[in-house]
Design a protein around this nucleic acid. Structure first.
Lengths: 117, 117
DNA sequence: CTTGACCTTGGACCGTACTCCACCCCTTAC
DNA sequence: GTAAGGGGTGGAGTACGGTCCAAGGTCAAG
């Protein structure tokens, strides 16, 4: 698969994929003419990257995970642990939002909302 | 209060506070010598800004709220309305996080967590 | 009266995650 | 053979949220 098809399959631009390659998030073999060539799994992998990103991982973190997974004794176990850690972060963020929400609710309708923050 | 003390109180740098001023997030009166002067409430206000930011609001969004308050016929009423709107945004964001959290929970412990995203 | 801590400004610079550009090569269709 | 539509590279530009720096003014203590 060439870069344009891969890009279309995952809803990214060619530029984005080349950018990800620079960050070590994806690698490609080259065809005789110099074009990047991707195996079919590349699309699934890029979707995984996008998912991780959506879940709050920075591209640098994802690249680091890839790096850490290389040579891990149990790949799946390591990945599950990382996800569990992210879930905890999400829980914390939700608690903070809940606090802000009730903070906002308490101020609404008061005489001077920001004055008592 | 001068900028250094304010910065110390909220755990920011003087540069950050001047940057926020440029964005319209905070205003200061000036002393005779040109130094910025802040009322005691400024610290609470800045902490509020930081909280909103930590919860995923961009500085531009926060500045927009401040902007909308300027010149409102009834400041308190306007602010209450904006806070009510923000509370709704917070609710939406919490729902999104809840979705991500259960998404993570579902993946944890599976044979190959990222494979089914 | 100098030293040091504090303040002022404008502008340069950083990291993240792209996005666009110019300029070039390769391949297929007509 | 020429035009369209891939692909390649390096480098610049964008938005966001700062962070740092130089050159200078202010002020209290010794």
């Amino acid at each position: 698969m060439r870069i344009g098809e891969l890009a279309a399959q995952v809803g990214a631009t060619r530029d984005t994929i080349r950018f990800y390659e620079k960050l070590g998030l994806i690698t490609a073999t080259r065809l005789a003419n110099g074009y990047r060539d991707y195996p079919p799994e590349a699309a699934a992998w890029l979707r995984h990257v996008r998912t991780a990103q959506r879940l709050g991982f920075s591209l640098a973190e994802i690249a680091q995970v890839v790096e850490q997974l290389r040579g891990a004794p149990d790949e799946d176990l390591a990945l599950s642990a990382l996800l569990a850690e992210k879930a905890r972060t999400v829980d914390e963020r939700m608690a903070a939002l809940e606090a802000l929400r009730s903070d906002l609710a308490a101020r609404i309708g008061t005489a001077c909302p920001l004055r008592h923050s």
